[in-house]
Design a protein around this nucleic acid. Sequence first.
RNA 1: GGGCCCGUAGCUCAGCUCGGUAGAGCAGGCGGCUCUUAACCGCAAGGUCAGGGGUUCGAAUCCCCUCGGGCCCGCCA
Length: 493
Amino acid sequence: MTEETALERERRAKIARWRSEGKEPYPWSFPGRVPTDVVRSAAAGLTPGESDPARSFRVAGRLRSLRRHGQVAFLDLDDAAGSLQLLLRADLLGDEAYRGWLADLDSGDIVGADGVASVTRRGEPSLEARSLTLLAKAIAPPPEKFHGLQDVEERIRRPYLDLLTSAESRERLRVRSLLVREVRRYFEAAGFLEVETPVLVPVAGGAAAAPFVTRSNYLGADLRLRIATELPLKKLLVGGAEKVFELGKSFRNEDLDSTHSPEFTELEAYWAYADYTEMRGFFEGLLAHLAGRAAELLPDSPARTKAAEAFRPPSRTVDFVDELERASGIPGLLDKSREELREIARRVGSTVPDSSPRGTFLEKLFEHFVEPTIDRLTFVVDHPEATTPLAKRHRSKPGRVERFEAFVPGYELANAYTELNDPDDQARRFEEQARGTGGDRYAYDADFVRALRYGLPPCTGIGFGVDRLVMALTGAESIKDVILFPIARTRTE
RNA sequence: GGGCCCGUAGCUCAGCUCGGUAGAGCAGGCGGCUCUUAACCGCAAGGUCAGGGGUUCGAAUCCCCUCGGGCCCGCCA
């Protein structure tokens, strides 16, 4: 385990000194404190060098830095509202108390302060301290005060240290929370009911991805972590629900990269008696609303500009097949056999297994020829049936399904269908998927097909990655930038 | 899975090309300073140079392996 450094020994000695004076280094509470911005605004009217004994305040937060100048000292205190300078004067606190404070306090300590609003001679709004209270002694020193935590590995493994020193990281945390709240409100305002379906499932269906497998002692059986919420949510529509959504984690046992995380936050919504055209209108409304909110929330920056560019109307719409044929210069793709498609895919560098289902090769070609050309919000519509086992056959385009995917530059944002609700067709599509001996397959969920036999109303559904949505809205480069605790290898110490 | 790059004090970084036994700043210790805000000045302290092996009289430096991380490619509705 970690050996104690000389620095930490020094700080423990300060705790011991503190206790020997009968004081508690980790007290239980600190009632009556106000956020630091309250003091800042109270001090705003004062002239430099002035303090106002009539306006006394109690604040609490973390000491970021201490500047000692003999008989006077300046301490920077951070709380969630911002930062406030504490002014310590030996002539006000008494020489012994003053020296004691400076001897026992370190940057990183959580402290409380009582004092009065003041402005220093140099014009900094401050709290002129009358007394200080140690609220939690920090034994480990905080990261470097100016550069912060630069080591990428440490930032991932110990996000709290990154938050401690990086205002930018704290800002991302706040913006993500506010945007997710807006998403919830938008669905609720449209009459959607938020529900929770199981994370632990016997069959992980609704998508083609490797699940995490775990074990139930009670059941004496293996369970999987869900890879999507599609199937249980549709079962709720069979049960009579008409508008539901779930916002929660899904898990896919795949690699981590700038747009994929094994554990990610997903929103899926299902809407009875509506089709994918109506869903698209609803979703575009959501995006327009969120882009507006993001513009308000984010400080002006290249990232904000990048995000705004992607969502600047009008959005583009392209037909999956037409666009693929145009971009690749290969006509008649829909009529080509699995073998022909496989050959074309291999020619452009795809290495998916030869035995993959036909739809996989079409998707590879799309990724290769069309995705790199996407430079703003783009809706790709009406995919070949072979790519999509859970979507309803297109009402007028043969061989297609009613589906749209929303893309921003670099990644897919959302995926929506008019949902397949014919139980016999569903069973057949699952079987077609299963016939591919390699590649990815949708797990056959027998209970889902059974549910459809009782009648799923015509409906539309959408799924999108919340992490990716936040990335797109904030212009983040990596999914790790919007996830507080990204997955990391367990380190053996 | 393939390629490239990185790992030096608690933190931020030099030193590696061209081998000679470890440097700075911040933080911490001691001393000084009544207006600083990356405060400043002086003194002292702080290291398994990610880990292991090899080459060499001698390795932070060169070679190999392992661990951890990053980026790109592949794979991943």
